[in-house]
């Protein structure tokens, strides 16, 4: 579990690392910690998986991937895990999850996010997924994003 110092470090860096030659020493200075303590704790949090990685988040739109489809599939429950595994392994699928259905409004249990340079590319990828799902597929849909309303990533809440 995280202690108060871990949380302070995450709060100080979640908006972005300082762009200076010694970013971790800079964060340590902000917080009144030794530089080694900051790197040691970040490294421990990477090992436990609290931090997935320290990296840049590319802006897909700026890079020309302007079509973003949340493809959703109603797949028979008994094969959903196995087939989801195969869909998740496709190179153009960036996130893939099994989620509960919300009947009657929402019959879909497999979600696969597809990015492409245009909608035709996304549609071609949907056809690839359809081929994998075969007879286990009952119905599907695809929701294009028309506007990003917020994108800040996860933030720690409260002061704890």
């Amino acid at each position: 579990m995280l202690d108060a110092i871990d949380r302070k470090i995450l709060k100080a860096t979640q908006g972005g690392l300082p762009l200076v030659p010694q970013p971790y020493a800079e964060v340590a200075k902000w917080l009144g910690l030794a530089p080694e303590e900051v790197t040691r704790r970040l490294s421990a949090m990477q090992e436990t998986g609290v931090i997935r990685r320290i990296a840049v988040a590319p802006n897909h739109y700026a890079l020309g991937m302007v079509a973003n489809g949340m493809s959703v599939w109603d797949v028979a429950d008994d094969t959903a895990e196995t087939l989801g595994e195969q869909v998740g392994a496709l190179p153009f699928v960036t996130h893939s999850y099994l989620r509960p259905r919300a009947l009657p409004q929402w019959p879909y249990n497999l979600f696969a996010m597809i990015h492409g340079s245009d909608r035709a590319e996304v549609e071609a990828h949907r056809a690839d997924i359809r081929a994998i799902l075969g007879d286990a597929l009952r119905s599907d849909d695809n929701l294009y994003s028309t506007r990003i309303l917020k994108k800040t990533g996860m933030r720690l809440q409260g002061d704890g």
């Binding site: 860096t13 972005g16 690392l17 931090i51 320290i54 988040a57 590319p58």
Partner: peptide, 23 residues
């Protein structure tokens, strides 16, 4: 990195947190 940020080619640079791993 500053240039990529100013151009909008990246949205963030820092730790990516996993809420589930944090409990």
């Amino acid at each position: 990195v500053m240039r990529l940020r100013d151009l909008g080619a990246i949205t963030r640079f820092g730790p990516f947190l996993d809420a589930a791993a944090m409990g």
